[in-house]
């Protein structure tokens, strides 16, 4: 029996509250992180990811309270990202109750952070986020370029080579977001997932673009992802985690079913 494929709801957290919006527009308060996390746990979420989008760095410590409170009541792996730039930031989050952290911009600014962090706290805690956007390299060929700062800044770094380097440096998982698909509801960039999975031997999480249950299925069955992460389809109640798993299970994907 292979490992189950994981379904991971992602929550944006601003100043200690869950918010929802599309592409950083129309951001609305969507509740207390503990209540939202409990709801997803009850639906059968395999992990929960929190993305701290708090703009003011002086309010950054509110995420620590969120992690502490959620970890006291929700007992599945918790991943936290946003504003992490040092091993000490990582340790603080893990001590508050996070199980994994995700870094993107900080890894690009300083790739040694990935090596240092995996050495210090273990690879299994380090998720490297790759925000990639297609780029034409010739009339018939495309590649993917890494972006930072939520997709605003191009880096010139090739996403596939970066994925390989991150594995060597000790990343435990890769969270791959297609900036072309994010927010479109057209489905994951399956080719991007396939190319990355052909190059690395660590788990990959597909993100960006889910609109339907079939999109979730294709991310796993065609894109070869080990896990899928989605935000809006869960927050807006389009589907529950349970419904996603029922669908995947019917299509022959091995998932952890939870019956309340």
């Amino acid at each position: 029996m292979p490992l189950t494929k994981r379904i991971i709801p992602c929550l944006d957290v601003d100043n200690g509250r869950v918010v929802k919006g599309t592409k950083f527009v129309d951001i609305k308060d969507a509740g207390d992180p503990v209540e939202v996390a409990k709801k997803y746990n009850d639906q059968g979420a395999d992990e929960i990811t929190f993305l701290d989008i708090t703009a003011s760095s002086s309010n950054r410590k509110t995420i620590l309270d969120v992690v502490e409170n959620v970890a006291s009541q929700v007992f599945i792996p918790l991943t936290v990202g946003g504003g992490i730039s040092s091993v000490s930031d990582i340790r603080t989050l893990l001590n508050s109750g996070a199980d994994k952290i995700t870094i993107n911009t900080a890894a690009i600014k300083n790739p040694n952070l990935v090596s240092d962090a995996s050495e210090a706290v273990g690879s299994q805690c380090i998720v490297v986020a790759i925000d990639a956007k297609r780029k034409k390299v010739s009339s018939s060929k495309e590649s993917w370029e890494i972006y930072t700062h939520g997709g605003r800044n191009a880096t010139g770094i090739d996403a596939l080579k970066w994925a390989e380097e991150m594995e060597i440096r000790g990343a435990g998982e890769l969270l791959v977001t297609s900036m072309d698909k994010d927010g479109t509801k057209e489905g994951f960039d399956l080719e991007l997932m396939q190319e990355i999975n052909a190059r690395v031997n660590i788990p990959t999480i597909a993100s960006g673009g889910v609109g339907t249950l079939e999109d979730m299925y294709r991310g796993i069955a065609v894109g070869n992802a080990d896990a899928v992460l989605a935000a809006s389809i869960f927050h807006f109640g389009t589907y529950t985690v349970h419904e996603v798993k029922e669908y995947l299970s019917k299509k022959g994907v091995n998932v952890r079913q939870v019956y309340e």
Binding site: M1, L3, T4, R6, D46, Q124, E173, I202, P203, R256
Partner: peptide, 12 residues
Amino acid sequence: DGMKIPHMGWNR
């Protein structure tokens, strides 16, 4: 081939 180690995730 392709079996990922560590064994990480949910299993029975």
